[in-house]
Computed example of a mutant assay.
Amino acid sequence: MEPVPVHEDGTAPAEQAIQTTVALEGDGADIAQARHLAAGFLTRVQAEHGLPVSQRALDLTQLVVSELVTNARKYAPGPVLMDLRIAGDVVEIVVWDSDPVLPVARAADAGRVGQHGLEIVMAVAQGFEVQREPVGKRITARIALLDDPGGAIAGRNPL
């Protein structure tokens, strides 16, 4: 058996983070590029790290990435940073943009055309946070990697 490396204080080093980060520069292909990156990231998580990822998690991650990057492109000037990382049994989607104005979900309105992106993200995510940064803001959404075998969405209470 191989010895486990330890720090001088006797603690084991932290597990290597599973994540990827990309800067999106603002051309018309950003949203498709971000979705493609998200799908490739989760495929690598399965293949290289042996973590199970449901098809639903893959689809929802791409949807959330699309909505968050679309909003950042629409409302904030300059580059957008996207970070995808595995945190336990969820994928965290973190999008930073330069606009300091925090988004607010609008009241549901079936007659409204467009502007449903934040509502969609909040409906499918197991966690959602918005933080103002020294420059701009950071939005984090969490999607469960697996579905509950009973049919419920993992991490959410059925209504």
Score class of each variant (00 low, 15 high):
1 M>K: 11
2 E>T: 14
2 E>G: 09
4 V>Y: 12
4 V>R: 13
5 P>E: 10
7 H>A: 05
8 E>W: 08
8 E>S: 09
14 A>E: 11
15 E>L: 13
15 E>V: 14
17 A>W: 00
19 Q>E: 13
19 Q>A: 12
20 T>H: 02
21 T>P: 00
22 V>M: 08
24 L>I: 11
25 E>D: 13
26 G>H: 05
27 D>H: 13
28 G>V: 09
28 G>Y: 06
29 A>W: 06
30 D>P: 02
31 I>R: 11
33 Q>A: 12
34 A>S: 15
35 R>H: 03
37 L>Y: 03
42 L>N: 03
43 T>C: 04
43 T>Y: 08
43 T>R: 14
44 R>N: 15
44 R>M: 10
45 V>T: 15
45 V>N: 03
46 Q>P: 00
46 Q>R: 15
47 A>P: 00
50 G>N: 11
51 L>R: 14
54 S>P: 05
54 S>D: 13
55 Q>V: 15
55 Q>R: 12
57 A>E: 03
58 L>D: 11
58 L>Y: 00
59 D>G: 13
59 D>Q: 15
60 L>M: 09
60 L>S: 01
61 T>L: 07
61 T>K: 00
63 L>E: 11
64 V>D: 01
64 V>C: 02
65 V>E: 01
65 V>Q: 02
66 S>Q: 13
66 S>A: 15
67 E>Y: 07
68 L>W: 03
69 V>A: 02
69 V>D: 00
70 T>P: 00
71 N>S: 12
73 R>Y: 06
74 K>W: 02
75 Y>G: 02
75 Y>Q: 05
75 Y>F: 15
76 A>G: 10
76 A>N: 09
77 P>Y: 06
80 V>H: 01
80 V>L: 05
81 L>C: 03
86 I>R: 05
88 G>M: 09
90 V>K: 03
90 V>C: 06
91 V>L: 10
92 E>M: 11
92 E>I: 03
93 I>P: 01
95 V>S: 00
96 W>V: 05
97 D>Q: 09
98 S>W: 01
98 S>K: 08
99 D>I: 01
99 D>A: 09
100 P>L: 07
100 P>T: 06
102 L>D: 04
104 V>Y: 04
104 V>N: 05
106 R>I: 07
107 A>T: 15
107 A>P: 02
109 D>I: 09
109 D>Y: 10
110 A>R: 12
111 G>L: 13
117 G>W: 01
117 G>E: 02
119 E>S: 13
120 I>P: 00
120 I>K: 03
120 I>S: 05
121 V>D: 02
122 M>H: 03
123 A>E: 15
124 V>N: 02
125 A>L: 05
126 Q>C: 15
127 G>Y: 06
127 G>M: 02
127 G>C: 02
127 G>L: 06
128 F>W: 14
131 Q>A: 10
133 E>F: 05
133 E>G: 05
134 P>E: 10
137 K>D: 03
139 I>W: 00
142 R>I: 04
143 I>K: 04
143 I>S: 01
143 I>E: 04
144 A>H: 06
146 L>D: 05
146 L>S: 11
147 D>V: 07
148 D>V: 04
148 D>L: 08
150 G>K: 11
150 G>R: 12
150 G>P: 00
151 G>S: 09
152 A>W: 14
155 G>Q: 09
157 N>V: 15
157 N>G: 07
158 P>S: 11
159 L>H: 05
